[in-house]
């Protein structure tokens, strides 16, 4: 009797542990690589370290320097431009295109064309667009055609180049979101739409009132994915302008990389990385916490 009881409690204990085993592979792998690296960077962010000599701990000095560094402030501003730009092109325009595509017969043709740049890596896409947009590319063509005032290297014009790069990365990155939106739109049940139409909803109003709310779950994925990636924008800028001229087109990720690996100030670079990550973490949490309500 006693033995049977303890066996039972053993079993129920085991039963409580088993669900966690489902989590184990993911948690272990992410723990070893991501969490370990995050903690490593957190420690380094409190130190002065060139990657060669011993670390020297200096408390919050890196963080204090960061908020007084004009380069950091400018790159924060640039990062904001990237975030807004990403919400406009790869999200809003992707949605517009997706809606348009669901209205035409040659869906898969348009899908493929708009997805095409996405098959390229950001680096390759960046190299291609750099060639097209720099001295001997489009500006040269316009110069030959007589528009001399446009015939200079657009990517070396401070501030304008950030806008050009946002559009370029939109060209490259619209594909994934477009696919997700089309999937979402195709999945929307017909009944609520028909019902709304009978009530007289048409065009934009129909979309605003009925379709978009139904698209919310896909929207969440797209929005979060795009936001996270836009905060971390790096490859396109690194390839197209290297953050220049004179650091005017740097984003936080580029500033972080430059400080850490070009200027060999790993501590300062890590501090910027921590700032960036915490910002993204907070935004993610704000967007996601609703979906966990009532879960526990």
């Amino acid at each position: 009797m006693e033995i049977a009881k303890s066996k039972l409690s053993m079993k129920s204990k085991l039963g409580k542990i088993i669900p966690y085993l489902y989590l184990a592979p993911s948690v272990i792998l992410v723990g070893i690589f991501c969490i370990y690296s995050d903690v490593f960077s957190l420690i380094v962010s409190f130190a002065e370290w060139d990657g060669l000599n011993e670390m020297k701990f200096i408390g919050f000095q890196n963080y204090m320097n960061m908020f007084q560094d004009p380069n950091f402030l400018l790159s924060s501003l640039n990062t904001l431009i990237w975030v807004v730009g990403t919400l406009l092109i790869p999200v809003a325009i992707a949605l517009l295109f997706a809606i348009a595509i669901t209205h035409v017969k040659t869906q898969s043709f348009f899908k493929t064309v708009f997805y095409l740049p996405n098959a390229l890596s950001q680096t390759i896409a960046g190299i291609i667009l750099t060639t097209i947009l720099s001295t001997y590319g489009l500006p040269h063509l316009l110069g030959v055609m007589g528009f001399d005032s446009l015939a200079n290297d657009w990517l070396t014009v401070p501030y304008l180049n950030t806008l050009i790069m946002v559009v370029s990365s939109g060209w490259q990155g619209i594909g994934l979101n477009l696919i997700l939106f089309i999937v979402g739109l195709n999945q929307i049940p017909k009944e609520p739409i028909e019902a709304a139409r009978i009530e007289g909803a048409q065009g934009i109003k129909l979309y605003r009132k009925v379709v978009l709310p139904l698209l919310k779950p896909i929207m969440l994925i797209v929005l979060l994915m795009s936001l996270v990636n836009s905060f971390k924008s790096f490859d396109t800028i690194w390839v197209m302008t290297n953050g220049g001229p004179y650091r005017t087109s740097e984003t936080l990720a580029v500033t972080m990389y430059k400080e850490a690996f070009v200027n060999n100030q790993l501590g300062y670079g890590s501090a910027i990385a921590m700032f960036l990550s915490v910002t993204v973490l907070i935004i993610s949490w704000l967007l996601l916490r609703d979906t966990f309500k009532g879960e526990e």
Binding site: T130, S134, T135, Y136, N152, D153, T156, P245
Partner: peptide, 10 residues
């Protein structure tokens, strides 16, 4: 005006 290294050669 400053150009890419390859364009400078060009």
């Amino acid at each position: 005006e400053p150009v890419k290294a390859v364009d400078q050669t060009k």
